Amino acid sequence: MRAADELGELRAATALITHHSDACHLQRHRWRALHQTRATVSHYSRRGDPCPACGPGDNPSRTDHNLKI
């Protein structure tokens, strides 16, 4: 009976897996990269340290928050 329970759990887990399109994966990747960059800039600006992701003379702004993701 235990094998039947495990098989049932496996079927339930497999049925719950969502399949996303390539466009969805690309959109998520872009959002994540943008979010990580914004978080890095915010982290260093709060500390008053120069942002390592920004080149010399760059002035990172948060004006890109209106971009469509």
Score class of each variant (00 low, 15 high):
residue 27 Q to E: 12
residue 13 A to L: 11
residue 64 D to G: 08
residue 28 R to E: 06
residue 56 P to V: 05
residue 24 C to A: 15
residue 36 Q to R: 09
residue 10 L to I: 13
residue 6 E to R: 15
residue 69 I to P: 00
residue 64 D to A: 14
residue 37 T to A: 12
residue 13 A to H: 09
residue 37 T to L: 15
residue 64 D to K: 01
residue 26 L to Y: 04
residue 34 L to N: 04
residue 38 R to N: 04
residue 41 V to P: 00
residue 32 R to Y: 04
residue 16 L to N: 13
residue 3 A to W: 09
residue 47 R to S: 08
residue 52 P to W: 05
residue 61 S to F: 02
residue 3 A to H: 13
residue 23 A to D: 08
residue 27 Q to Y: 07
residue 33 A to E: 04
residue 48 G to Q: 02
residue 14 T to G: 03
residue 28 R to A: 15
residue 27 Q to F: 03
residue 36 Q to F: 03
residue 30 R to L: 12
residue 63 T to K: 07
residue 34 L to I: 04
residue 47 R to E: 04
residue 52 P to M: 07
residue 45 S to W: 01
residue 50 P to Q: 06
residue 43 H to N: 05
residue 69 I to C: 09
residue 67 L to G: 01
residue 42 S to F: 13
residue 58 D to S: 15
residue 16 L to E: 12
residue 25 H to K: 12
residue 34 L to H: 12
residue 30 R to P: 00
residue 29 H to P: 00
residue 9 E to D: 14
residue 8 G to N: 10
residue 64 D to E: 05
residue 69 I to A: 13
residue 5 D to L: 14
residue 34 L to T: 10
residue 39 A to D: 09
residue 20 H to A: 12
residue 11 R to F: 13
residue 36 Q to H: 06
residue 41 V to M: 06
residue 26 L to I: 02
residue 53 A to P: 00
residue 36 Q to Y: 03
residue 60 P to I: 01
residue 51 C to S: 09
residue 5 D to V: 11
residue 17 I to N: 04
residue 34 L to F: 14
residue 22 D to F: 07
residue 56 P to W: 03
residue 19 H to T: 11
residue 67 L to Q: 07
residue 17 I to T: 08
residue 68 K to P: 00
residue 47 R to K: 05
residue 11 R to L: 13
residue 9 E to P: 01
residue 10 L to T: 10
residue 13 A to V: 06
residue 60 P to R: 01
residue 12 A to T: 14
residue 19 H to L: 06
residue 26 L to K: 10
residue 56 P to N: 02
residue 53 A to K: 09
residue 3 A to I: 09
residue 56 P to R: 02
residue 66 N to I: 05
residue 47 R to A: 15
residue 1 M to Q: 08
residue 3 A to K: 12
residue 68 K to I: 07
residue 57 G to F: 03
residue 38 R to W: 02
residue 39 A to K: 11
residue 54 C to T: 01
residue 16 L to Y: 05
residue 65 H to M: 11
residue 53 A to N: 12
residue 46 R to K: 07
residue 4 A to P: 00
residue 11 R to S: 08
residue 9 E to A: 15
residue 60 P to Y: 02
residue 62 R to N: 08
residue 38 R to L: 13
residue 34 L to A: 15
residue 44 Y to M: 06
residue 56 P to D: 03
residue 48 G to R: 02
residue 16 L to M: 14
residue 67 L to D: 05
residue 1 M to C: 09
residue 64 D to Y: 02
residue 7 L to E: 14
residue 53 A to T: 13
residue 35 H to P: 00
residue 23 A to L: 06
residue 40 T to W: 00
residue 25 H to I: 11
residue 25 H to P: 00
residue 26 L to W: 02
residue 5 D to H: 06
residue 56 P to K: 03
